[in-house]
Write a protein that binds this DNA or RNA. Structure first.
Lengths: 211, 211, 211, 211
DNA sequence: CGTTAATCGAGACGGTACGTCCTGTCTTCGG
DNA sequence: CCGAAGACAGGACGTACCGTCTCGATTAACG
């Protein structure tokens, strides 16, 4: 695949003459970027020079791989995949809670620290947005699978607007992590409250109907 | 009152010796900032020098009013209040849709263009976050009022977790405006789909109906 | 006067709006360059960054005045005028020796330290050569005046090729200062030996003639 | 013998295991340097990378032979020997003119193009100066031989300060080639004018005549 | 005749200087 | 005193070169 602004990958299988690029440098650079992002480094202070210094790398080594700062950020974010958020195979409700957990505690993971920093950039860069979507899609897909299982089991209503329910579950958590509406003390059981609030809309309680 | 990072206001009522500050300059600067934000100017390109040039103003005229770039942004955002989103006094469901409308079409207003740019900054600056909350609070409060009216009318369930329902309604729209999960074609009736999906969770169980 | 590559002088008499350029910065920069040249700083080590650091000046302050390193050198050299080499008004021979003295001891003055560094650049830059010529011309002219006085007094031959005699007197000293042909011990009385050697060619000894 | 800054020569007669150094590379490198110098390449643009590219050689191949750029220049210059400036065995004056000719037309030969570039470096590097002296010494020696022959013939004065006369003859030409004092139109018969001007100082006083 | 070892072109490595641009402060004018 | 204009010290940008290093591929002489 060819990324628009990403690293210049010599993706040919042809032999590359000359000294090969150092994998250690690649890792050190990306790690330095992610660490600085996660540390809460002000976005303007995330200078290439600082990255180079922190990674123990020359500036040219960075610019040999990425044409500019934006592209470096781009690829750094691409590497933030996070764990697929295993669900224990319990009840549908338990699985939903398990899937929401990482999104509910975004501020405690490096990925969570990083995401908000990129939102502004995403507004301008469709590519960066695509990356974000690609990262979040697997979790959303997993959620859809769980919902379909619930429908099959009869636990959930069969006429669910799947995409909207997914948005209903993730959206408030994402917004909360950005805006911090609720006081911090209430955040602990936020996911539980959220699922409880949404549950009547999705559970297959026989007679009640709203549409 | 002196805000932490806000404009340095000469809040004394005492006579100000010398030439008074130009109100035209104030407006021109704020307008320049908002225009550039709304135009999709890259955040890093929103330099004080560019703002000064666009406003036809000297750099010192800006720094005399705000101590730094952040404070300028801060005050610029404060002026974006937006209209309180009038609701026609119809059914509860109609009012909810009316209140969600501006948030659902964020990308078509200047305020909507500006918001995402501030989210990243908000992560670092609690003050800026406070401003955002102050701006959004009236709308959320209005929503709570409508929900309470619905409960009183018997249209909505009396045991609603009000804050969570508000989050359930606004959160997905905010997340959507930032992440653009859904394809653009589906966005038109996004609010309708959202309310429809949420409705079973909030509508009074047995007899009442909101459509 | 407008120099081709020299400093961008606002030679208009019109008022210049804004803060005027700092004369202290001008001096500090030029002095730093000349000091570093005279100290025997390797030409490649004469970096703009080093000059800025030594002058206690930002790099932009240098680049605001000169477009590049070459132009800075150019103007720095222009300021090296050296003293007009006073001659005591003694005999013609004594005056000649007095005029040659600074050229004969070039390596002991800052100007002498600087000149050789510029010769290579002069080969490419006619402008720089012009500066060198402008600096050296007064001395050469003074020498011509002395020679004409000697001719008028009858001390020197009336048919002298003035320019060539000047070249005969300065040329060997210049070449010597660059190439260091003679061992250092012989340099003390070099001027005396030179004048002694040249003297028969210019003195008005009546009968001898070579042409 | 190992020169301080010169090429690292494997001066042992011992067997050299492994692949021997390519003589073609040696030549190509030196030729590339001399060509670029003669082409008027700005001295700062004479980068090792450019030399390597021009010579069709890897950078390491250069650094394996010379420790740094200076040493490469050093050896490149050493190879510029120039022809010994044949003299036709005519009169002493004719021989002098013949010996001066190459120095008088320095700017038309590659050697002449190169020399000025080295003068600046010579100021720092005694070694490089030594090379220059070694190159120029044969010509100066030849001149001394001619002068001694003139003295023996009775054409020249017997009490000449030989070294000074040599300096008197070469010095002005060298200075002229660097500084370009005289206008170009006068340069054609420069040597003739020089010898004519010097002649009275060296010709035997009474009877002899050199023209 | 296969081993061995230094060479070759190529190019990545950590550094450093370049010349440009922006920040936040300052210093001059004219109003 | 304010306003515009713009210079100031500082520092990051992205480029180019230095001198070193590491590749796979030669290329001889030794065994």
């Amino acid at each position: 695949m060819t990324t628009a602004t990403g690293a210049v990958e010599a993706d040919q299988d042809r032999k590359a003459p000359g000294r090969p690029r150092s994998a250690r440098a690649d890792e050190a650079i990306i790690e330095a970027v992610l660490d600085m992002l996660a540390e809460g480094t002000a976005f303007e202070a995330l200078s290439i020079e600082a990255v180079a210094a922190r990674a123990g790398v020359g500036k040219a080594t960075i610019y040999r791989r990425w044409p500019n700062k934006e592209a470096l950020l781009f690829d750094a974010v691409k590497t933030v995949k996070g764990e697929p958020a295993q669900m224990g195979g319990g009840s549908v409700r338990e699985d939903i809670v398990a899937l929401l957990a990482p999104a509910g505690h975004l501020e405690h993971s490096r990925a969570g620290q990083i995401m908000p920093c990129l939102l502004a950039e995403m507004q301008r860069s469709p590519e960066l947005r695509h990356v974000y979507q690609r990262i979040s899609e697997p979790r959303r897909d997993l959620m859809r699978t769980v919902l379909r299982r619930g429908i099959a089991e009869g636990t959930l209503r069969p006429d669910l607007d799947l995409d909207m329910v997914v948005a209903l579950l993730f959206g408030p958590l994402i917004a909360q992590s950005l805006v911090h509406w609720s006081p911090d003390t209430a955040r602990e059981d936020l996911i539980e409250r959220l699922v409880t609030a949404v549950w009547p809309a999705i559970a297959a309680t026989a007679p009640a109907d709203g549409s």
